[in-house]
């Protein structure tokens, strides 16, 4: 065993422990550690930490922007819904107004028509009265004319008087019908 572990000068085996090598390892590793501690790791780690910070910041910003967008969308949706309701209300109001307007117009038209009809009727009645009066006067004139003719022929005939009266009665009856 000692033959395997202890090193004579210039003689090595894979299992030998060389005290000088322990010293060298500590020196080389120590120097490397010091150099990297000063010049190596900070360069990488600082950049990484700053990048992590920046990415986190951007993520937060994106989250804020997303929330803002959602809020705006909600607001727009609300606005659109209100506008729709408003529009519907306006249309309904207009419809109701139009219906009412039509009703009044119709009523007015009917009323005017009725008035017109009434007036026409009145005028027709008046005209008829006028025509009857005229006809009557004409009949009297004709009768008088006929009577004059008869008077010329037989002035005092009883029969003739009867005839005239009959004639007049006939006329009266015709008018009544």
């Amino acid at each position: 065993m000692p033959a395997l572990l202890l090193v004579q000068e210039g003689e090595f085996t894979p299992f030998s422990i060389n005290t000088g090598l322990i010293f060298w390892t500590i020196v080389v590793f120590g120097v490397l550690l010091a150099l990297l501690w000063r010049f190596g790791w900070p360069a990488i780690l600082k950049s990484v930490e700053e990048r992590e910070h920046r990415i986190q910041q951007q993520l937060d910003e994106a989250e804020r922007a997303r929330a803002e967008a959602a809020r705006l969308l909600e607001e727009h949706k609300r606005t659109i819904a209100t506008a729709k309701a408003d529009a519907q209300e306006i249309v309904a109001k207009a419809k109701a107004l139009a219906d009412k307007e039509r009703e009044t117009l119709l009523a007015k038209a009917r009323q005017e028509y009725d008035q017109l009809l009434e007036r026409a009727r009145l005028e027709i009645g008046a005209e008829k009265e006028k025509a009857i009066v005229a006809l009557r006067r004409e009949a009297v004139d004709l009768s008088i004319a006929a009577a004059s003719k008869l008077l010329e022929a037989q002035l005092d005939s009883e029969t003739n008087r009867k005839l005239v009266m009959q004639y007049l009665a006939q006329l009266e009856a015709g008018r009544a019908r």
Binding site: V28, L32, L35, L36, F39, G40, A43, I44, S47, V48
Partner: peptide
């Protein structure tokens, strides 16, 4: 040790 230092130093410069 030299290779480690060069690797880390160069990578650090590039990353920075």
């Amino acid at each position: 040790a030299l290779l480690v230092f060069l690797t880390i130093w160069y990578a650090g410069r590039q990353v920075a």
